[in-house]
Design a protein around this nucleic acid. Sequence first.
DNA 1: TAAGTGATCTCT
DNA 2: GAGATCACTTAA
Length: 179
Amino acid sequence: MSVLKKDFYLQPVLKVAPALLGKFLVLRNGGTEIARMITEVEAYDGPNDKACHAFKGLTPRTKVMFEEGGVWYVYLIYGMYYMLNIVTGPRDYPAAVLIRGVDGSNGPGKLTTLYGVNSRFNGLESKKKLGLYIEDRGVVVKSSQIKKSPRIGVDYAGTIWSKKEYRFSTHMPTRESFQ
DNA sequence: TAAGTGATCTCT
DNA sequence: GAGATCACTTAA
C-alpha cells in the first residue's frame, strides 16, 4: 500500500496508462475517504496526438499538461462535467492520462461527480497531502486482463489518431479481490 | 437520437 | 464580442 510517486508519472504516457489499472483513486477529505480501483483510462500522448488538447499548442487551458508529470489536469466539458486527468512525462511534453472509470462507476463525468472533483484540483500535485491521489494497494492486473480499444469521442482527430488503441480497461473483479 | 450546458478557442 | 466546438449524460 503506497502512494504513487512522481517518478512513476515521469514515464511515457503509454506505460503509465495501463499501469494505472488496478491502482486506487483515493479522495481523503477530513474523516471521509473514497477509494476505488481504476478500471478504465485513456492516454493522450503529447504534441503528436491530434486528440490531445495540447496538440494545438500551449493555451491557458492546456498549460497544465506541459507541467512535469504527477499533477492533476481537470477541465469542464460540455458545460457540465469535469474530466480528471493525471499529467505524465517530463516538463514541456504535454501528455496525460484521462481517468475514465473506477470500480462501481461508469463514465468519466459520473466519476468526478462521485468524487466531488472540480477545477480546484487543476494544476495541483497528486500526493497524500492534497487529499486526492493514486495509491497502489497491491492489486496486480495481468496484461492479459487489459483490454485495448480506440478512444471515445475523438473522431475529430482523423482516422489515424481516432483509431489508436489508447484506451485501456480491465474487468478485474472488484473489492473482494483485495480485502 | 438529440438536446442540454458553459468554458474555451478562433475568428472578426 | 459572436459563433463553433467539445475527451458526456440523460431521457425518450
